[in-house]
Design a protein around this nucleic acid. Structure first.
Lengths: 148, 148
DNA sequence: TCACAATTCCCCACTTTTCCCCACCATGCG
DNA sequence: CGCATGGTGGGGAAAAGTGGGGAATTGTGA
């Protein structure tokens, strides 16, 4: 009965001096109260925030993925899990981001919080903006080919 | 059971100083009460408004297009989701348009709201008028080739 | 075991944004 | 005319985001 969350949209929020970051109320409402979340490193230098059930799906997917080199697979899994962290909301709907992950994503004060369906990505704004501009053109080219 | 809406026609409405935009009553009546809508980027610089189930179908379609490169595929999904937003009607039948999308479509006070069957497009009037004039001629040429 | 430092967490306060509500005006129609 | 409907605008309450003080907790080293 528990419907999968469907996070959508971009918001620009501030990481404060205590490494706290607000999560948009719209997203919070999609997450059952008291549920913990998993914050881990994502690709292209962002962070990923998962509700625990989405995280579970991800780990299962990872088990079934076919990387020929088993050694590489183990390594990938280790890095993913080693840097992952359980986080909770405080009274104001913020999460505390571990220093390790702040360094990984080169987070400064300005961040972009982006809903991607089953997960939420967190980007340093100074990295997101150029990435966005570059990829937007690719998007438009691809989308133009599709009959709507 | 649930019949697809069929939005038709152009209206020129005002975006107010609080970024609210009225949706024509005749369109609203086609949307079940309480249903959320997805506002997202369209092509040629407009915005598109979908009943959420229509958007879901569209996004799945877009996600399944064949991009071999996984990195490009991630980028595609990010752009798709980053520029979309859930919106609801207020008591007066208006939606609140996020600043990000206002910037995307270069919306000023005067907007054009256009019914296109299953979706509604929102244009800055100053962009719509020249686009319309230009495409109208093309339309006439095309029409002469088509048997109706 | 204790003292000290660093981190985390609870709480409060301030500012901005969003949303509820009402009021106005134009239009169309009996 | 008077009433109903639909679009526009704005006041003000409520919610959301931001920042910081200080207590509680944890960890470290003497």
């Amino acid at each position: 009965m528990n419907k999968n969350p469907n996070f959508i949209g971009t918001t620009f929020y501030s990481l404060d001096t205590k490494n706290r970051l607000a999560i948009p109320a719209k997203f919070r409402l999609l997450i059952p109260h008291g549920q913990t979340l998993i914050l881990s490193q994502g690709l292209e230098g962002c962070l990923e925030l998962y509700p625990s059930n989405s995280w579970k799906l991800l780990s299962e997917k990872l088990e079934n993925i076919s990387i020929k080199n088993k050694k590489d697979k183990r390594a990938f899994k280790r890095i993913l899990f080693a840097n992952a962290s359980e986080v909770e909301f405080d009274e104001e709907g913020r999460i505390l981001i571990p220093q390790l992950l702040i360094d990984y994503a080169v987070l400064k004060k300005e961040t972009a919080v982006i809903g991607l369906g089953e997960k939420i990505e967190i980007w340093a704004k100074h990295l997101w903006i150029p990435y966005y501009k570059k990829q937007k053109n690719l998007f438009i080219q691809q989308a133009s080919k599709i009959e709507l």
